[in-house]
Amino acid sequence: MVIPYLYLLLQSLAPWDQVDKTFFPTGLTLKSYQWLWTGGGYEAQPWLSALFNSVFVSAVDSFCMVAIGAIVGYGLSIMEFRGKKFINGFILFQMFYPGIILLVPTFLVIRFLGLYNSVWAMIIPRMVGLWAIFMYTGFFRSINMEVIEAARLDGASELSIIFRIMLPISRSITSVIFLFVFMDRWTELMWDLIVVKDPAHQTLNVLLSTMFGPYGSYPGPLYSAGVLLTFPILALFIIFSRNFVKGVQFVLR
Rank of each mutant, 00 (worst) to 15 (best):
M1C: 03
Y5A: 11
L6I: 14
L10K: 03
A14H: 07
P15E: 05
V19G: 09
T22F: 03
S32N: 12
T38I: 15
A44W: 12
S54I: 01
S54W: 01
V55I: 15
A59P: 04
S62D: 10
F63C: 15
F63I: 15
G69F: 00
I71S: 05
Y74G: 06
M79S: 13
M79Y: 05
M79D: 00
F81W: 07
F81R: 06
R82M: 14
K85Q: 07
K85G: 07
G89W: 11
L92A: 06
F93W: 09
Q94I: 14
P98R: 05
P98A: 11
I100A: 09
L103K: 11
V104K: 07
T106N: 06
F112R: 13
G114S: 03
L115I: 02
L115M: 11
L115Y: 03
L115N: 02
Y116D: 06
N117Y: 05
N117D: 02
S118A: 12
V119S: 04
A121P: 01
M122N: 02
I124Y: 08
I124F: 13
R126D: 08
R126Y: 08
R126Q: 13
G129K: 12
W131G: 13
A132L: 12
I133Y: 00
F134S: 06
G138L: 01
R141L: 02
I143E: 01
I148R: 13
I148D: 01
I148G: 00
E149R: 12
A150S: 03
R152C: 02
R152Q: 13
A156T: 14
S157C: 09
E158T: 10
L159K: 08
L159C: 05
I161N: 05
I162V: 09
F163W: 05
M166H: 04
M166I: 07
M166K: 08
L167S: 08
S170D: 06
R171M: 04
I173M: 08
S175M: 02
I177G: 02
F178C: 10
L179Y: 07
F182P: 01
M183P: 02
D184Y: 09
T187Y: 12
W191A: 03
W191M: 08
W191N: 01
D192A: 14
L193I: 09
P199F: 10
A200C: 07
A200D: 03
H201W: 12
Q202V: 02
L204T: 10
V206K: 13
F212M: 07
G213K: 14
G213N: 11
Y215H: 13
P219K: 07
P221R: 09
L222P: 07
Y223N: 14
V227N: 06
L228D: 08
L228Q: 03
T230C: 11
I233K: 14
L234T: 10
L234A: 13
A235C: 11
A235P: 06
L236Q: 03
I238H: 04
I239M: 10
S241H: 14
S241E: 11
F244Y: 06
V245F: 06
F250V: 13
V251G: 11
V251P: 04
